[in-house]
């Protein structure tokens, strides 16, 4: 009788699990191939990782600017899952910056912060305990730290993309991108349109386009809508560059306008 009872309890669960699985995998198929669906062709939108941007600014001889980073102690203030996700992006970007500039202690601190945020968001791929141990072991090896942190960001983005967690990936991409642009702006001491960092900042309009394209494919939560409208506002400033005469890439006023909008968005995210 006992056995029959156990089987009776288990059977409905088994069925419900397999049904859920089916639904989940169907949902995954459609989202995995996500969604700028033009004429039946599915499009995926990608962004270069912040590491690529930081490698460039280091190459351009910009100094490491610890004061510009979002302090890891502020992580406890981020309560909602949206705040956690978007600041996860900010911290992941800060971590990439510290790694590129070979700042071992900061790398360790930011990795720990990210591990906690990842755990709170239910994302452990890329930020598990074993990685933290690898970080500890490689604190004096900048090259390994770079590989580990690059791996982690890549793994977490893939995990979220593959598991249809666009509600987390969207804010992470926004945070990661806005922070790299912010640190890029902070790396420019004085405006000069021939400064390679200023030039790379102007090229961020392509990334912004891709980011907005990606955001348009995901579920429109209130938070996503708010950030999309802020990014569209920033895009309107980048679009002005297209009307400049051929010999002018960006004017001081245009740079200032972009800079102020980026700083405002970043401040609103991290406050």
């Amino acid at each position: 009788m006992k056995k029959i009872f156990i089987i009776l309890i288990i059977i409905p669960f088994l069925f419900s699990c397999s049904n859920n699985n089916k639904e989940l995998s169907e949902e995954m198929d459609s989202l995995n191939m996500s969604s700028l669906d033009t004429n039946g062709v599915k499009t995926r939108v990608k962004l270069p990782s912040p590491v690529e941007f930081y490698l460039f600014i280091r190459e351009s001889k910009a100094q490491f600017n610890a004061q510009a980073l979002n302090t890891s102690s502020k992580a406890v203030n981020y309560i909602s899952s949206n705040q956690k996700a978007i600041n996860f992006g900010i911290y992941a970007s800060d971590l990439a910056y510290c790694t590129v500039y070979e700042q071992q202690q900061e790398t360790n601190d930011y990795f720990k912060t990210l591990k906690n945020l990842a755990s709170a968001l239910g994302v452990n791929d890329g930020y598990d305990k074993s990685i933290l141990t690898r970080i500890d072991k490689n604190l004096n090896n900048s090259d390994s730290l770079y590989q580990i942190t690059n791996d982690s960001y890549w793994k977490v983005c893939n995990y979220l993309e593959d598991n249809s967690k666009s509600n987390i990936l969207g804010p992470i991409l926004i945070g990661g991108w806005i922070e790299s642009l912010y640190l890029g702006i902070k790396a420019v001491e004085q405006f000069d349109q021939n400064n390679p960092i200023v030039q790379r900042i102007t090229e961020q309009r392509y990334l912004l386009d891709n980011l907005l394209d990606y955001l348009s494919t995901i579920k429109q939560t209130k938070d996503i809508e708010i950030y999309t409208s802020k990014l569209v506002n920033l895009q309107s400033s980048f679009v002005k560059l297209a009307s400049n005469p051929n010999n002018i890439l960006i004017t001081k006023e245009q740079y200032k306008e972009i800079g102020q909008k980026v700083i405002k968005i970043r401040t609103e995210i991290t406050q």
């Binding site: 198929d29 995995n32 191939m33 700028l36 039946g40 062709v41 599915k42 499009t43 995926r44 939108v45 990608k46 962004l47 270069p48 990782s49 590491v51 690529e52 941007f53 460039f56 190459e59 690059n150 791996d151 960001y153 890549w154 893939n158 993309e161 790379r200 090229e203 392509y206 990334l207 891709n210 394209d213």
Partner: peptide, 24 residues
């Protein structure tokens, strides 16, 4: 690592990837 992507496709499927290539 960065912009590579993976998908499971069926025969006759077409898929596109938008990416950015940085100079340098």
């Amino acid at each position: 690592r960065g912009q590579s992507t993976f998908a499971k496709l069926f025969p006759k499927d077409t898929c596109r990837v938008q990416a950015i290539l940085y100079s340098g």
